[in-house]
Design a binder for these strands. Structure first.
Lengths: 359, 359
DNA sequence: CCTCCGCCGGAAAACCTTTTCCCCAAAAAA
DNA sequence: TTTTTTGGGGAAAAGGTTTTCCGGCGGAGG
């Protein structure tokens, strides 16, 4: 299968790809010891000027680059961070991933990614596997039960969650302030005069769904009735649930996310229901399209890349890089209401006024 | 639960996290030699039943998992594949990444990702750096010049391109059949009766843009005039270029991609231009939204995940896994025309009626 | 002039796993 | 029963880098 070292030197098969130069080759070329080469490259100890020059020349001549596996073996660290996402194809998670990647690159860390395909059962194993290859793992919106998460946190050295806090916040996490965001939407709708609104529920297991429910419970009252409609987290779920939402007789519909709202909007269009004339619609997340859609979607802005970056910072400050650090912090990312064209005062009567609007 | 064996190392930092168990710990626990443990786990040589059981028990008891760095050092392979993308936040690349990741997982490979932030200059370094950590690199839509790509291909052991073929196809690549896709769009528009169409150009450096141009040149003639309008690859580019496209007097607009078409559609809406009544519009790629938009976008379907999977297969068959294989294959992914609502026969006259439209 | 200290560079250990080499015991053949 | 073969298991080397330990040399102080 793999040839031995002696063979490797003379491997002249078609590829003609010379085996990678090692630190020993460089040392020989520069007529110094491997230790000196290492010192020049890592800068751990000063080296006399002429020797340093000789080493640098040799490195350039041979195109030498240290073998990360050997470095990792010695250091006990891999200089890599793992990211587990339910679905990379989902723009939300893609943005979070991008945030982590960019932040990690600044500290010379590599990013490993695992996609669980929205299967909550696969999360645990994926994280565990990734933790072998990385110094820590960022877990995005895990659906796994609390118990499993707690156990995982003990097995994985530096675990950070996004949009999920463990009980008591033992595991560091960065979460969107869903509660404030949802409250903002409710306030906005109430101020517009809506009194009966429908909420399209997300996945029951999702922590973010439970946070939204808290806000809903706080906001609802005699003058603000909230009708819960089971839905889901994808556009097709929204498309499917749109009719039920309408059937509640609500004057406004709050979707679990912008993505869900997209499907709702499409279905409303098919039904000839005009937004916001006949009914108002809100999303959550402020994905890029929400501004391109007609009508432009009223939603809550969440800086997804920032979420990723903050997760990285949590990972870094938990001692993954320098040494030991704090252990269980939960940082909350702000969620800002973005008012656009999809919300308006309810049509007092059903009379669809001839709004020209939207100059 | 956790091994006592690792105690002899005195790394007692606050965290109280016991260092990972090594194969030596397992060997001691099972009262066998490390070699036997290795043999049980890799299955390279048969081991008697009782010893095997002892080893397996010890492994479970200690939660032992082999250190990938040590394995990699020995094997000279990392069991990882790198993916370089211009922008993970772009759903197109996110999908390709997902395709690679899923395929890689099936072969027990990890995926490393680097995001160049659309900066063509960063591609070379990113790929080179990733190649240290991975057994090969998948380069998505590289904008780097031909010369640089050729040089990179020599420095990186197993390089695979997506949507870019090197001169003569020396580097393995999987590409969308942009030419056929574009030809399909042209044929479709011509059959509808369009004679003057505008094309919103993508990035000049992009290989896919040049492929589209070939198709355009082949399709254009006295009865099918194509007006080239500089644009770009993002939605805002499309938004900006929409006016210029209209100014050509074309009855149909072909956008570089669905993403660009999104911006065009938004601008047309602002201008009160109705699609497809006043002007037809086409995209490319068939991103998820194209079906949710109103009007639903006529476009060319490209299986983005399949692109990633094919790239992985190319990587695998190039000898990255088993040994030596073929070297420079180019596989072409089919591109299928999807006819939806955004295209229609041209309105006989050019007259931009004061459409209220969009019922 | 001698001694001590400090600095620079080399030798070697350590990191963890796989694999080769070798030995020993048991089974098969004579 | 003795010799040969086979098969299973242990010892040790290899793989590339960092870091500790140590030796040697030059300069400064006594």
């Amino acid at each position: 299968m793999w040839c031995n070292a002696a063979m490797d030197r003379v491997r002249t098969d078609a590829g003609a790809r010379p085996p990678r130069a090692t630190i020993i080759d460089v040392a020989r070329e520069a007529a110094v010891s491997p230790a000196t080469v290492s010192r020049v490259l890592t800068g751990t100890k000063p080296v006399s000027a002429d020797l340093e020059q000789r080493v640098r020349d040799a490195v350039n001549r041979l195109g030498y680059r240290p073998n990360p596996a050997a470095q990792g073996l010695l250091r006990g660290a891999t200089h890599a961070v793992g990211v587990v996402v339910p679905d990379v194809g989902n723009p939300y998670f893609a943005e979070v991933l991008k945030g982590v990647t960019n932040a990690a690159e600044e500290s010379d860390f590599r990013t490993l990614v695992a996609d669980t395909g929205e299967k909550g059962g696969a999360e645990h194993d994926a994280a565990l596997e990734l933790s072998r290859w990385a110094d820590g793992v960022v877990l995005c919106s895990p659906r796994m039960p609390q118990r499993e998460l707690a156990k995982l946190a003990q097995a994985v050295p530096h675990l950070v969650c996004v949009n999920r806090v463990g009980r008591g916040g033992q595991v560091p996490a960065v979460v969107v302030d869903f509660e404030a965001g949802m409250a903002g939407i409710c306030r906005h709708l109430r101020e517009l005069g809506h009194r009966r609104v429908a909420y399209l529920r997300g996945p029951a297991r999702a922590w973010s769904e439970r946070a939204r429910q808290r806000a809903l419970r706080a906001a609802s009252g005699p003058d603000f009735e909230v009708f819960q409609v089971p839905c889901g987290s994808s556009s097709v779920d929204g498309h499917r649930a749109a009719d039920a939402a309408l059937a509640t007789g609500a004057t406004a519909v709050m979707a679990f996310s912008d993505y869900v709202a997209l499907g709702v909007l499409a279905r409303f269009d098919e039904l000839g229901v005009s937004v916001p004339r006949d009914v108002s619609l809100t999303g959550f997340d402020d994905i890029a399209l929400s501004e391109l859609l007609r009508p432009r979607l009223t939603t809550v802005r969440v800086s997804k890349q920032d979420l990723g970056r903050r997760a990285w910072e949590l990972f870094a400050s938990s001692g993954a890089i320098d040494g030991a650090g704090e252990t269980g912090r939960v940082v909350t990312a702000s969620a800002e209401l973005i008012t656009r064209d999809s919300t308006a005062p309810p049509a007092g009567a059903i009379t669809p006024l001839p709004k020209t609007a939207k100059a």
